[in-house]
Amino acid sequence: MFDRIPVAIESNRSGRGALRAAGAPARSTGAAVRVPHVVPSAVAGDTVVRLEDDAEGEAVLREALDLPNAEGTGADGWPVRPDRDGV
């Protein structure tokens, strides 16, 4: 039924519930959980200011992937940087 289940996360821990909720259908269907993390930024005048550096974004992503992987759900993720990725 499902091949991939996307679960977007933020820098805080609020995404844990969403990751847990995605785990059950992922395990029952053999789907992978895909976890994009949008690195937060703000616009100040004509400048985009990143609110999280690369190391912080990678740490958020690693922590988020620990939960589904520990529960036996295949999960992968990547950072999305709107200032560089053209989002």
Rank of each mutant, 00 (worst) to 15 (best):
Ala64Met: 05
Ala64Pro: 04
Val49His: 01
Val60Tyr: 03
Ala70Gln: 04
Asp53Asn: 12
Trp78Cys: 06
Leu65Arg: 02
Arg50Pro: 07
Pro79Trp: 07
Asp54His: 04
Thr47Val: 02
Asp53Lys: 06
Thr73Phe: 03
Asn69Gly: 11
Arg81Pro: 02
Asn69Val: 15
Val48Thr: 05
Glu58Ile: 08
Asp66Val: 15
Glu58Tyr: 02
Glu63His: 08
Val60Phe: 03
Val80Asn: 02
Val60Gln: 03
Glu52His: 11
Leu51Cys: 12
Asn69Glu: 15
Ala55Trp: 10
Arg50Lys: 08
Ala75Gly: 05
Glu56Gly: 14
Glu71His: 03
Ala75Gln: 10
Leu51Ile: 12
Glu71Val: 09
Ala55Thr: 13
Val60Thr: 15
Glu56Met: 13
Thr73His: 01
Glu52Cys: 14
Gly77Gln: 10
Asp54Tyr: 08
Leu67Gln: 09
Leu51Glu: 14
Val49Tyr: 01
Leu51Asn: 10
Arg62Ile: 11
Thr73Trp: 06
Thr73Ile: 11
Leu61Ser: 10
Leu61Thr: 13
Pro79Lys: 09
Gly57Trp: 03
Val60Leu: 04
Val80Gln: 04
Asp76Cys: 13
Ala70His: 02
Glu58Lys: 03
Leu51Phe: 10
Val49Ile: 06
Gly57His: 05
Ala55Cys: 04
Gly72Val: 03
Gly74Glu: 14
Leu61Met: 09
Val48Tyr: 01
Asp54Lys: 03
Pro68Arg: 05
Ala55Met: 06
Glu56Asn: 08
Glu63Met: 08
Ala59Met: 12
Arg81Met: 11
Ala75Cys: 13
Thr47Asp: 00
Arg62Ala: 13
Asp76Glu: 15
Asp76Pro: 02
Ala70Leu: 05
Arg81Ala: 10
Asn69Ile: 12
Asp54Gln: 07
Val80Ser: 03
Pro79Tyr: 09
Gly77Leu: 09
Val80Ala: 07
Asp46His: 00
Gly72Trp: 02
Gly72Ser: 01
Arg62Cys: 05
Arg62Lys: 09
Asp54Glu: 13
Val60Arg: 02
Ala59Val: 11
Glu58Gln: 12
Ala64Asn: 05
Leu61Gln: 08
